[in-house]
Design a protein around this nucleic acid. Structure first.
Length: 152
DNA sequence: TTGTGTTTTACGACCTC
DNA sequence: GAGGTCGTAAAACACAA
């Protein structure tokens, strides 16, 4: 029967089809009803499968992003450690960085581009990093002053 | 052969135009 | 009132054990 062409059945068409097939018109009507129901079920199943695959893809992307975040946290931690070691070395070598800082006379706080750290749940790390950054800034200023005072 | 799952047919209740 | 959807029962069919 021509379900693909006509999803719904006009009564004239129904009677004609019934006569053609030697069936009761009621049977033809029921057949079309059932075909429509099956077609609808199939469409729902297809839509579900499509949504499911989209959902799976998003889940996979989430995993990838989480692993990237872990990686970045690790890198940040290592960078922080390196800064800390450097600043300790500097403190040990030059006698008293606090004096240097005082001589520097309060430096301007550099704007940080690490605000994303807070978004990654790394509260506290940003403060440490700013501290190390400040020390480096003070050290550079101290060296410049020293060079100028000795005409280097 | 039989138990089980799937598909098809038919019906009643209810809804919409 | 005709014809639609929805839910469901029963028959028909397919198939593994």
């Amino acid at each position: 029967m021509g379900f693909q062409k006509e999803r719904k059945l006009e009564s004239g068409r129904k009677v004609h089809l019934a006569a053609e097939l030697g069936l009761d018109p009621k049977q033809v009507a029921v057949w079309f009803q059932n075909r429509r129901a099956r077609h609808k079920n199939k469409q729902v199943e297809e839509a579900y499968a499509e949504l499911k695959s989209a959902h799976d893809a998003v889940g996979l992307q989430k995993c990838l992003l989480e692993s990237q975040v872990l990686n970045l946290k690790e890198q940040l931690f290592e960078a922080k450690e390196e800064k800390r070691k450097l600043s300790l070395g500097i403190n040990g070598g030059a006698s008293g960085l606090s004096n240097v800082t005082a001589a520097g006379g309060g430096s301007s706080s550099p704007s940080s581009s690490f605000s994303v750290v807070g978004d990654l749940g790394l509260e506290g790390v940003e403060g440490d990093f700013m501290y190390a950054h400040q020390q480096e800034h003070d050290f550079n200023k101290y060296m410049m002053d020293w060079a100028n005072s000795y005409g280097v």
